[in-house]
Design a protein around this nucleic acid. Sequence first.
DNA 1: GGTATAGAAATTGGCGCCAAAATTGGTTAC
DNA 2: GTAACCAATTTTGGCGCCAATTTCTATACC
Lengths: 217, 217
Amino acid sequence: MSVKADPATGNLADRMARDIQAGVFAPGMWLKQVDLETRYEAKRMEVRRALDQLALKRLVRHVPNRGYHVHVPDDRQAEEVREVRLILETAAAGSIVANATAADIAALRVLAQRFADLILEGTLLDLYEANIAFHAKLLALGSNRELINILWELRGRGPSAPVTQWKTRARIEQSSREHFHMVEAIAAGDAGALRRLTADHILQTEERPPAHEQDGA
Amino acid sequence: MSVKADPATGNLADRMARDIQAGVFAPGMWLKQVDLETRYEAKRMEVRRALDQLALKRLVRHVPNRGYHVHVPDDRQAEEVREVRLILETAAAGSIVANATAADIAALRVLAQRFADLILEGTLLDLYEANIAFHAKLLALGSNRELINILWELRGRGPSAPVTQWKTRARIEQSSREHFHMVEAIAAGDAGALRRLTADHILQTEERPPAHEQDGA
DNA sequence: GGTATAGAAATTGGCGCCAAAATTGGTTAC
DNA sequence: GTAACCAATTTTGGCGCCAATTTCTATACC
């Protein structure tokens, strides 16, 4: 696919963020400004600005006089990010269920299906994009925009999905099943089930038999 | 007061952020680069970089070819920020209580007392600093650093305390009392009480009679 | 043969200058 | 007297150049 000619500064940081998340740049890799210039067809200053923004978001680390390299989250940080995501996504579950219209649910089913289809036919990058699309649509249903923003930002801080999360085909397929289960929970108006499924999805715990007990918090 | 000669770039953004929060720059005010240059004794480029960082943190807004102005959070956003803070700070309460040593509690008492003393003797800015110090020490007890970072950043996004939160002397005194109550809850090892007090502190609800029922989530 | 050192190439990062755009103030026409 | 228009000043923002620092390479010495 061709690189779109969209040289907006803010957009460059986003594009680079996506590429980092998608695993185009390996963790720890040094990002040389000249390379980025040619790769994104951007001016030197835009590259520098984008790198500063990414450094502020902790996606890259800045070492004075050495440059910027892709940040490698240690285990502790990864675990902490998961914990915060767990807190916030479960907190958002209520309003997601409350706000979802029939059209929203249909759209989510389409996105979940697209992800499922791409397991066989698509590349890992396609899969990554489809996953992002599903979760974007899902989160957009929440009523608290600040919460959504933070979650979106937080998603970038964890380890990139293709590299560490989707290690095995089985794991990807489980993710896909979880997507469908989440949609069904929303369709059923069952916020508690959505919370439970979201927690499993983030923590990547093994699939449970359908539980009926009400465990709050 | 003299401006310290600390021209670290990242630090400049923080100093400006503090000044915005403290109300030095009125909401909506245009921040002219030359003024900032002289005020902070910084180079033009540092100012620009700091402004970009603040724009990314949503503390200022950037209008192309017009400049940067202090962001005015609308009511909806302010409410949403409060909601997220509520979720996260109550979530942190558990580990705060668990981690607090006797020395920590003593330190918190000192900081709460300093705030109380400054109600009479200090300026509004002193009060602001003391409040920050208390909450910094409090949050630092949490074990999840990511959560602490987000909360700290979130604090900047809400309306500045002196301008909108501490409207009346009575309100400030209630805040001070709540500080002490929070310390006592920690000393007693009562996470539930700390959660409740934190919620009240953020929402600025009226003081309740000491409740005993267990209301989770 | 391996290591240390010096020189060369490359990379980052800062500074100043200048053009484009906007605001201000004054002047003129209606 | 008011409104519109035009000129002058101010302000932002981009571009290119160059210095400081680091990394790579080749040579010499142990």
